[in-house]
Simulated scan of single mutants.
Amino acid sequence: MHMADALISPVVGGTMLFLSAGIGIYSVKKVEKDIEDNKIPLMGVMGAFVFAAQMINFSIPGTGSSGHIGGGLLLAILLGPYAGFLTMAAVLLIQAFFFADGGLLAYGANVFNLGFYTCFITYQLIFKKVTLKGFSRKTIYIACILSAAIGLQMGSLSVVLETVLSGKAELPFKSFLILMQPIHLAIGITEGFITAAVVSFVWNTRPELIERTTKGLSLGNISIKKVLVTLSLATLIIIGGLSWFASSNPDGLEWSIEKITGSDELETEGVVYSTMGKIQSFTSIFPDYSFKSEKKETEEELKDMIREEKLESNSETVLVAVIGGGITLFIALMTGFSINIYKRKKNKKQDI
């Protein structure tokens, strides 16, 4: 459900960027107060895991569409809502800049749609409420499925509203809404099952990690090495194994747009769009998760090349995914380390 720049106006894109940046700054301040050394590597591993998982589209039977997990709920459950939101923002930034997945103008909207609702609404009001009296396999599955499904419904509704507010007449509100909500309900339920499976594993392995994070308590000195190793191996399996079986069908957003307009992309005109396109064309060294051609394509030529040729081979996708996962791991780790270093320096000054 990554929005392209063509779906959003500069005003709406700028507003959503400002809003997401404000939530991000607030999250940094909250994380600064309780970040722990053993949570930093978990941020890195979970960032890489979500990056890999978002690459694997699963088919929605009978529709010709596909979907992938958003990952915001999973990040919130394992990291807490604030660190989860920051990790999601890092994942989406890497996807937009290096892989041309989601527009730069639409970056703030994508962060809000995929991160805010799951990390701060459904995680807080549904997942924590359902598991309030204790964890079990049953409560985990109920909480995850409800939270993921409702969170994605909110996110997909936001996409529709942001598009309508941007004045995109090609996508009438009613028609767009009727297509977006049901298909993302199916995607959300599937994400709920996947999230529950991962959370159940972590809970069985280190119940303290899930239980303390849900209550907002310190992790203390609990060892999470087994969780880190297993999730790292799972990331490699997703990249190297499941990527061969990923669906090539358009995702829910592209499918909805194509049903209405006959194409999965909208035409754009204007200095802002052309500037953003040129910047993204320059920074995206792996457009559409493939190696960029040596030929210097324009933005439109690059899109045509991706649309017509797709990937030269799936092995190329695997290699690019490994690189992307490594970049995400590094950025997420650096985010955690930077916040931790700033916290220590601030505490040191206060002690003096």
Rank of each mutant, 00 (worst) to 15 (best):
N204F: 07
G155P: 08
L217Q: 13
V199N: 00
V111I: 15
F116D: 00
T118C: 07
L132F: 13
M180H: 00
A196Y: 01
S156V: 12
T230Y: 10
T230F: 07
F193P: 02
T122I: 10
I194Y: 07
I210N: 02
F173D: 10
F112T: 09
W203E: 03
Y123E: 00
K168F: 03
S158R: 07
A169S: 15
I121P: 07
T122K: 04
F120Q: 14
P182G: 12
C144R: 01
G192C: 01
S232Y: 06
E162C: 12
A169P: 00
E162Q: 15
S223D: 10
T205A: 09
T163C: 10
I121A: 03
T195W: 05
V130F: 01
S166D: 13
G192F: 00
G216P: 01
S175I: 06
G220P: 13
N204V: 00
T214R: 13
T235Y: 01
S175N: 10
S166V: 13
A148G: 05
T235N: 03
C144F: 04
G220C: 10
I224S: 00
T230P: 06
I189C: 06
N204L: 14
L185W: 11
K168H: 11
I142F: 00
G134P: 13
H184Q: 14
I150R: 02
R137M: 09
F201M: 12
A148I: 03
C119S: 12
I142R: 00
Y123W: 12
V227F: 01
L171E: 03
L171N: 08
K168L: 06
V159T: 13
T163Q: 06
V160E: 03
Q181A: 05
T163W: 02
E170R: 10
F135E: 08
L185C: 13
I140L: 13
K128R: 14
L236H: 12
N221T: 13
T195G: 08
L231P: 09
L171A: 05
R206C: 13
Q153I: 13
M180F: 02
T139E: 12
K225T: 15
A186Y: 07
T139C: 03
F116A: 06
T190K: 04
S136T: 15
Q153K: 05
R137F: 11
G151Q: 12
L233T: 06
I210F: 07
T118I: 10
G220F: 11
K174T: 15
L231S: 08
T235G: 03
L157W: 08
L114P: 03
Q153M: 14
L146V: 10
S136D: 09
F120T: 04
F120I: 10
R212G: 04
L114T: 08
G108A: 14
L146F: 09
L217G: 04
K215D: 02
V159W: 01
A186F: 12
F135W: 12
I210D: 04
I140K: 05
I222M: 11
A169H: 13
V229Y: 11
C119A: 15
L171K: 07
A234D: 06
L165F: 15
T190H: 08
V111D: 05
G134I: 12
S156E: 05
E170Q: 14
P207L: 08
I194L: 15
